[in-house]
Structure formats: structure tokens, C-alpha cells
Computed example of a mutant assay.
Amino acid sequence: MTYCVAMRLDAGLVFLSDSRTNAGVDAISTARKMTVFEEPGDRVMVLLTAGNLAISQSVRQILAENHDEKRSLWNARDMFEAASIVGEAVRQVHKRDAHALRDAGIEFNVSLVFGGQIRGERVRLFNIYAAGNFVEATPENCYFQIGEAKYGKPIIDRVVHPSLPLGEAAKCALISMDSTLKSNISVGLPLDLLVYEADSLRVTRFVNIDERNTYFRMIRDTWGHRLRQVFGEIQNPEWNPTEPAEFPLARAGEPDCWGQPVRARRNPSRTQE
């Protein structure tokens, strides 16, 4: 399993991926989930992958080797065409491998996030599915997650919006990743973080993060401490025994009402037996 997140903002794009692969408790390894396709001054495209590693590596290989083809990422006219080319690569792998995988009882499982900018158009971000179809990020939904998304989603939902500066978005992505690392052993270090500034048409901000990274260690320590601090500052619930409950427990001899808990009582006669 893995966790990847990408954000499309007014100022550019943020991509973050972990590197853990898991084929069982005794077969844990690392593999990069981020691939960068760059032609400085003309285009920068980033691919994040989750799911079956053999499938995602095959898709990536097809895209990388099509450098001289008439239709490839290197000569796509815009990001929509580039996303279509990625979807076609997924379908090509499906056509080749899906039947054999099905015979082996394995699902064709892959999900991709693909984004970037080609000279002459805006930055764009897509979520590409196992069928090769895709959806594009919008101002109302400006980020995508793949893999173990549930643990890191709450912080992104509360913080990220299109006008958020790139630095703050990168910080939010790292907190989201830390929350996932804390709760799920199938996601692990090292991480790849790429921040793309709109219209730069080159990679200028990239870092590989391991357990020795000072900033990420600060994020982990500070976020955990501040969460506990805020939690302690929130008032505990108060119980007033003089006020009847809005939905009281059903009393003996009364029928149970929908939405009320069932009260079970010990039968004294049975206890004496």
C-alpha cells in the first residue's frame, strides 16, 4: 500500500509520496512512487502511483520509453492530451496482463495522480483510474489522494484551498503524511516532495525526506504536541443529573423506541437459580 497526495493551487502544484511496498508482513520493501517528466522551458509533468507495483511500473516504463513516438508525453499539445496518453498506457497494460492476473486471483489494481504544466497553458491535475479514464481537479476540489487516504484527509479538508501559498500547502501535505504514518504501518519513509511553481517550466523544489530530515522531525514532534495541547484546552462535556435526558432510556415495561439504546437488566430469579 502507499499514500500519495497532490494539490493544484493558484501558485502551482504540490506532490508528495511515500515509498513503502508491502506484499505481506515479511515482504516489506521500498520503491519510489513519483516519476518526473521534464523538458526545461517547455513542460514539467509528475506522476504518482498506487496499487499493484508491477502494473504501475509497467505504465511508467511505457510512458518513459515513448520519447520518440508521434504521440507521447513529450509532444502532447496540452495536459488533457497528456492525461489521455497516461490513460492509454494503463489500458495497454490491462490488455496485456489483466487476463493472467484474473486467472491468478489478483485484481487489476492501480490508481494514478498526474499533473503539471505545458508551455502556453495553466497548471492542471488529474486523477487517473484503473480503467484509464480520469477526472480533473477543480477550484472546489483542488487536491487528489490515492492509497491510504483516510488518515491524512481531515487536515487537508480543513486547510487547503486554491489561494493557499505553496509553502503552507507543502506543510499541510507533510502533516497529512505524518498522520498517515502514525496510523498505518503500510505507509513508510522515505518520502518524495516536489513543489512546482506555476510558469517556471522546470523543477526547482524537490527533496527526499527520511527519518533524519530535521524539518519533518519538527513537523512530527510539533503536530503531536499541539494536538494534545488543543485537545486539553477543549472543555469536557458536562452532565446535569437534574435535567431529564432528551431521549431517556426505555424504562422497564415500556416498549423500546427507535433510536434509543436497549437497557438490559439482570433477572433476580434467574440469579438465585
Results as ranks from 00 to 15, higher is better:
M1I: 08
A6C: 05
R8S: 06
R8H: 12
L9V: 08
D10T: 13
D10Q: 12
A11T: 15
A11L: 09
A11E: 15
V14D: 00
V14A: 00
S17N: 06
D18R: 02
S19D: 04
D26W: 15
A27N: 14
T30S: 09
A31C: 11
R32G: 06
M34A: 03
M34Q: 12
V36I: 15
E39N: 11
P40T: 08
M45K: 02
M45C: 09
L47F: 05
T49K: 05
G51S: 05
L53F: 07
I55K: 02
Q57Y: 04
S58R: 09
S58E: 09
V59F: 00
V59W: 01
A64S: 09
N66I: 00
N66P: 02
D68I: 08
E69A: 12
E69Q: 11
K70H: 10
L73R: 05
N75S: 08
R77L: 15
D78A: 03
F80I: 14
F80N: 11
E81Y: 05
A82C: 09
A82Q: 07
G87H: 04
V90K: 04
Q92C: 09
H94C: 06
D97F: 12
R102G: 02
A104C: 05
A104Y: 04
A104V: 09
E107I: 14
N109W: 13
V110H: 00
S111W: 04
Q117I: 07
Q117C: 05
V123K: 00
R124H: 10
F126K: 00
Y129I: 03
A130F: 15
A131E: 12
A131R: 07
N133A: 02
A137R: 06
T138A: 03
C142W: 06
Q145W: 03
G147N: 05
K150M: 08
I155V: 13
I156D: 00
I156R: 01
R158L: 14
P162Y: 03
P162G: 02
L164M: 13
P165A: 01
L166K: 01
G167H: 07
E168V: 13
E168K: 09
A169P: 05
C172I: 15
A173Y: 11
I175T: 07
K182T: 15
K182S: 08
K182D: 12
N184Y: 10
N184M: 03
I185W: 03
V187L: 01
V187E: 00
P190D: 04
D192I: 06
L194F: 02
D199F: 11
D199H: 13
L201S: 01
V203R: 01
T204R: 07
N208W: 04
D210K: 05
D210P: 06
E211M: 08
T214M: 08
Y215W: 14
F216R: 00
M218K: 13
I219E: 01
I219D: 01
R220C: 10
D221K: 10
T222I: 14
T222M: 13
T222L: 14
W223D: 12
W223N: 10
G224S: 11
G224L: 10
R226F: 13
R226E: 11
Q229M: 12
Q229I: 12
G232K: 14
G232R: 14
G232T: 14
E238S: 13
N240I: 13
P244N: 06
A252N: 10
G253L: 10
P255M: 07
P255S: 08
W258S: 09
P261V: 14
V262L: 13
R263M: 09
R263E: 10
N267L: 12
P268G: 02
S269H: 11
R270C: 02
E273Q: 14
E273K: 14
